[in-house]
Amino acid sequence: MATIFTKIINGEVPAEKLAEDDRFLSFLDVRPIRPGHTLVVTKQETDYIFDLDDDTLGGLLPFAKQLADPIQRATGCNRVGIMVAGLEVPHCHVHLVPMDRISDLDFGKAKDATADELAEMAARIRTEL
């Protein structure tokens, strides 16, 4: 059965997409820890990050890196943190989270975002890409 991320990749579920190539897709998390919280997913549906082939794993961070500065400029954060949790959706992904302090990387702070909030933030980040 396809994961929610595969459904987003295939256009079956809407998302505020930011960047995409033949192997990766980035979009805003609908339950962000902080505004601008972005997910970077592999288009290859693989559950565990360390089960990815070396080429895909090696391309994941450079793809994510291109988003860090735009997210930082759009949100005004001090840094963009990166986390790999991999338990909530069985599809390899990394979290890019705008942060000013280490305590900002707390999934307990996540809140549902409205479609308008996501659209506005996506537009701000896309402007910076």
Rank of each mutant, 00 (worst) to 15 (best):
D55E: 15
D55F: 02
T56S: 06
L57Y: 14
L57H: 08
L57R: 11
L57V: 06
G58R: 09
G58K: 08
G58P: 08
G59A: 07
G59W: 00
G59M: 02
L60G: 02
L60D: 07
L61M: 15
L61W: 13
L61E: 12
P62V: 04
P62M: 05
P62A: 09
A64W: 01
A64P: 04
K65D: 15
K65H: 14
Q66G: 10
Q66L: 06
Q66D: 12
L67Y: 01
L67W: 00
A68F: 08
A68P: 00
A68N: 06
A68D: 09
A68T: 14
D69V: 14
P70Y: 05
P70L: 01
P70V: 05
P70S: 08
P70F: 01
I71W: 01
I71H: 04
I71Q: 10
I71K: 08
Q72V: 08
Q72D: 11
R73T: 14
R73E: 13
A74Q: 10
A74T: 10
T75S: 09
T75K: 03
G76L: 12
G76E: 09
G76W: 12
G76H: 06
G76F: 08
G76S: 11
C77A: 15
N78F: 05
N78K: 15
N78S: 15
R79A: 02
V80S: 12
V80G: 14
V80P: 10
V80F: 08
G81W: 01
G81M: 09
G81C: 06
I82E: 14
I82F: 07
I82R: 07
I82Y: 06
M83H: 02
M83P: 00
A85L: 14
G86Q: 07
G86C: 10
L87S: 09
E88W: 00
E88F: 02
E88H: 11
E88N: 14
E88A: 12
V89T: 14
V89F: 04
V89Y: 03
V89E: 07
V89Q: 11
V89R: 10
P90A: 10
C92F: 10
C92S: 13
C92Y: 04
C92M: 12
H93V: 02
H93I: 01
H93A: 02
V94M: 07
V94P: 00
V94E: 01
H95K: 04
H95F: 01
L96C: 03
V97N: 08
V97C: 07
V97A: 03
P98L: 09
M99G: 08
M99W: 01
M99S: 12
D100N: 15
D100V: 05
D100W: 14
R101H: 14
R101F: 02
R101W: 00
I102Y: 02
I102D: 11
I102H: 05
I102A: 13
S103L: 11
D104P: 10
D104R: 09
L105H: 03
D106R: 02
D106H: 01
D106W: 00
F107L: 14
G108F: 04
G108Y: 03
G108M: 09
K109S: 14
K109N: 13
K109M: 11
K109A: 15
K109Y: 03
K111N: 13
K111H: 10
K111W: 01
A113R: 11
A113Y: 11
A113L: 07
T114K: 03
T114H: 07
A115G: 11
A115V: 13
A115W: 01
A115L: 12
A115C: 02
